[in-house]
Every structure is written in C-alpha cells, then in structure tokens.
Design a protein around this nucleic acid. Structure first.
Lengths: 138, 138
DNA sequence: TATTGTTATACTCTATAACTATA
DNA sequence: TATAGTTATAGAGTATAACAATA
C-alpha cells in the first residue's frame, strides 16, 4: 500500500457524494440551468476568456459535446463565442454581463449558506485546497 | 468571511475538476459502463443491500431516474432487485457475483495506478478523508 | 393519506464518426 | 497532415407528472 492507497476507495466515494449532493442544488440557484451548465459558468472566469478546446479539456469530455453545451448557454444569452485573432479555427468563450451575474450568484451560493463547505474551518479549507491542488496537478 | 468561505469557490472548482477527470476513465475499467453506472456499483457494497429509495438519496436524484439506472445494470446481470420482506413496496438492490467482480476491478483502479489519489501521501490521504467526512456529515 | 417504485414524456449530456475550415 | 469546431446520430442521464400497489 503506497500513498493514500488505503483510503482511496473511501475518499473517492466521498468525493462523488459531495459532488452529487451539491450538484442537485445548483440549478435552483441558477434559474433552471443544468448542473453541467453551472459548472461551465463556473469554469469560465470573467476577464479570462477560454478556447472551446480548453473547456472540453476541463470537462474531460469530447469536443463535440461542448458545441451543444455552449449553444444552449449562448441561446440563453449567458455566454458568447468570438473568433480568436491569432488562429481563425479557434473560438474564444466569454461570459456576457448576464452570464457574469448568474456566475456571481452561483459563487455566492457555493461560498455561503446551505453549502457543506461552510462547515469547514478556515484552516481545514486551506488544507483541503492544498491537497486538491496536488491531486489535480494544478 | 466565515469558515472556508474564502476558498470555497476554488475548492468547489477543484472538486468538480477531480470528479470530471476521474469520471472519464472509469468506463474503460468497467467494460463500457457509464460513469454513473460505475458510481452505482461503488455505492452498493457487497453484503450491504440497499433500497432503491436510498440509492436515489445517495445520488441526490429523483426516484424515477433510479428505475432506468437499475434496469440497465440488471440487464447486464450486475445488479439484482428483490422484494423487501418487511415492506412489500420496497425493492432491495444487491450485486450479483458478476457485479461484485466489476466493482472490485473499479476499486482496484481507484486505489492504484492512474488515479491522482496515489499522488497523496498516507498522511494527506488521512487528512483529506477526515475533511470530506465532515463535509458530508458522514 | 402518504410512500415506493414504475411509466411516459421531454430535455440535456455524451461519445463516435464524418465533415469544413484553417494551420 | 494535423487541429478546432460543427453536424448527425444514438444512447444514457435527468426531472416532472400521473399511476399502481402497499402502508
């Protein structure tokens, strides 16, 4: 048994549980967006536009999936596509003002009230963050 | 700012990232099951049969969803439904021998090789586990 | 009356394969 | 040739509403 091997099953089970528990509550905060749409909004940080291919990478999904995902968010007026000036194949994603507002609401929700994350002390929060960063190699 | 409030956005972003990163790799280990089907297999522990309603709870999804989920796993011979002796409305889920084998393979995968969890030291694993347990209230 | 599970329905999510435009 | 994104397609996940059986 090396590293976290002994606890890995349990850790993974809890990570999934945390993810599912939160996921179901996001749409109510975001006016009927799906959980994945909420994640996309969270991943696109305002002022930090991102290529569609990078979003596919962040979601660990096929690029073809991102097309429909962004179609739906764009039709709601929350996200915009623009051409990249550097490479005319690339499309850059950015939040609209409306998208930024929904994102802010989501983040306030994650930060505050019903979220289990508020159960953690500041110290635990810092430690968890550090561990997750190592986990993600980020 | 109280508790982990200051880091909550980032923590949540990383939790989602970890979840998505792993999710995509599960099906290859489990012979073409979907990620959610893998989670279901992980949630039903051998020798610990569970009511369908409890599974819906664990997945934080509607009960109607579980019907189809279990239909698909049952048609692959991985899970079984039985009547509860106590309450004839309730159906109890249990793994078949084949289901237990797939589950064991999944758990070995999570415990070992390509999983980021192996990057953590034993100490970090213990700390992460403790924090997640508090997060989930488990 | 309330609860467990199912069915029908309508979306969304997702991967695969084939395509276009650009590099 | 290789890459970014799209389209078409098929299947899985998901919630809502209406229902049957049981409590």
């Amino acid at each position: 048994m090396k590293g976290a091997g002994g606890n890995a099953d349990r850790v993974w089970q809890l990570l999934v549980k945390v993810y599912f528990a939160q996921r179901g509550q996001l749409p109510a905060e975001a006016g009927d967006l799906s959980p994945v749409q909420c994640h996309v909004l969270h991943l696109i940080e305002p002022g930090r536009p991102m290529a569609m291919s990078r979003l596919a990478e962040a979601l660990a999904c096929d690029a073809s999936n991102v097309t429909g995902l962004i179609d739906r968010l764009e039709s709601r007026g929350l996200v915009q596509r623009r051409q990249s000036p550097d490479d005319r194949r690339v499309k850059i994603l950015d939040l609209t003002p409306a998208g930024s507002r929904v994102r802010a609401r989501l983040m306030r929700y994650v930060r505050e009230e019903p979220l289990p994350l508020s159960r953690l002390s500041a110290r635990e929060g810092r430690i968890l963050l550090k561990i997750l960063e190592r986990l993600v190699g980020d």
